[in-house]
Each structure stands twice: as C-alpha cells, then as structure tokens.
Amino acid sequence: MAGSNPNAKPMNLTLKVWRQKNRITKGGIVDYQVKDISPDMSFLEMLDVLNEDLLRQGQEPVAFDHDCREGICGSCNLFINGRAHGPEQGTTTCQLHMRKFSDGDTITIEPWRATAFPVNKDLSVDRSAFDRIIQAGGYVSINTGGTPDANEIPIPKDISDRAFEAATCIGCGACVASCKNASAMLFVSAKVSQLALLPQGHVERKTRVENMVAQMDLEGFGACTNIGSCAAECPVGISLENIAILNQEFLAAKATSNNLA
C-alpha cells in the first residue's frame, strides 16, 4: 500500500468503550481487546475490526457515527483518552491514525457529553440541536433570476480569507464536547462571522444573529467563559476571534434591529 510503513508492527490494544442500549437506559464502560491492528489504520478502521470481531462472536457491534471518513462531514465524533477527536491536534477522529498509539495501550472511547447532545446509542450522539441553530438563521436567501456574473461583488482578499476560515467549520461539536460549560459559541460564531463578513450575508445580518443565539440558548448550551478549550480542540482551527465577532454582532443587532420582541 502506498505510504504504508513495511516495518510497522501490528498492535494489540485494550479498549474501554462506552456502551449504552438507547437514550433511556444507563450506559457504562465495557473492556475489549483488539489484536493485530496495523499502525496505518485509521481510528475508525480499528473500530471496524472490533465490530467484525463482535459480530463473529454474535455480539452487538458498537454504534458510532461516521460518513465521509476524510475529515469534512463532522460525523465521526469520539472522545478518545479524555480529548475530543483524540490526542492529535487539528484532526477529526477519521483522520487520526493508529500510529499515534503504541502496542499495549489502553484507549478510553466515550461519546460527546452535553445536555444538548443526548446519547442515542453507544458512541452515537444526537447533534440535531446544531441543525436547529443553523435553521434559525445560518443561511443566506438566494432569489431566483438570471445567473449573476462571477466576481460581480468585490470582496477584499483578507475579508474573503477570514470568511473562508470561518466557513471551514464542519459542525462536529468538538467545541461543545470539550467545553467545561458545554457552550456552542464557537460553532455559532463561525457561521455568524462567516456570513457577517460577506456582502451576501448582510441582508439577514441582524435577524440571523438574534435568532441563532436565541436558538442556541433554547437548546440548553452553556455560556462561554473564554476558557478556550473549544478552539484548542477544534479539528479545523476555528479561532476565538469569531466569538468576539459574534458578541459584537449580537450587541449591534439587538441595539439597532427593528425587532421589538
């Protein structure tokens, strides 16, 4: 295989995995052994091996979320050895490779924890609260009509770069999972500042931030205390600067919007 290391020795690992039947039952940690794990495997491939073993033994496989397996969808959310997306900075769980671990390691694997993110089953968590926040205002309305020319609206390069940086948020929820306050401010701020920086976002600028923050509070996320765990654990490096922009946008909108309610 291209890029694989022929000298890499297969590893045997002890996994401590959170198992939980459904939303209502209480869960707990269960120990498993996995053998002959290649260091070139991704973390999810290692879990695939575990699940094949479990199926062979007639046991229920471990439920975990994943989709793209290339770091762009934000589904593969695991709390690994006490860190969101595991020990490596700037990676999603699907991009984390077993070469970051050593033979004989014990690895604790838990679901995201937050009141607003209930566990569906095992390691799979309901993050629909994020969808409802986006539905509350994280969009721009595009009216139909003739196709506009490309680059018709001039946007300074540094502004478009900053908007793009904010736009890289994949909605994984590592920010919430790692925050002591289970605050969703980094996620909300990424979308709010992305759209506030761009002219296309200005039409709904005030209602967007008012409605998204209201929905964020309604979902039961905590309030930010500027601890910074979120930005440290974010797989795409969304910065705290966005939260400062969010707070400004919120205050400006509240002070000047026509919304009296």
Partner: peptide, 10 residues
C-alpha cells in the same frame, strides 16, 4: 466523562 484531560486544552 470517565476520562477527561481538560488540563491539556485550557
């Protein structure tokens, strides 16, 4: 969390 290394990020 059963294991939480929050000291590594804040």
């Amino acid at each position: 969390y059963v294991s939480n290394h929050i000291e590594q990020n804040s």
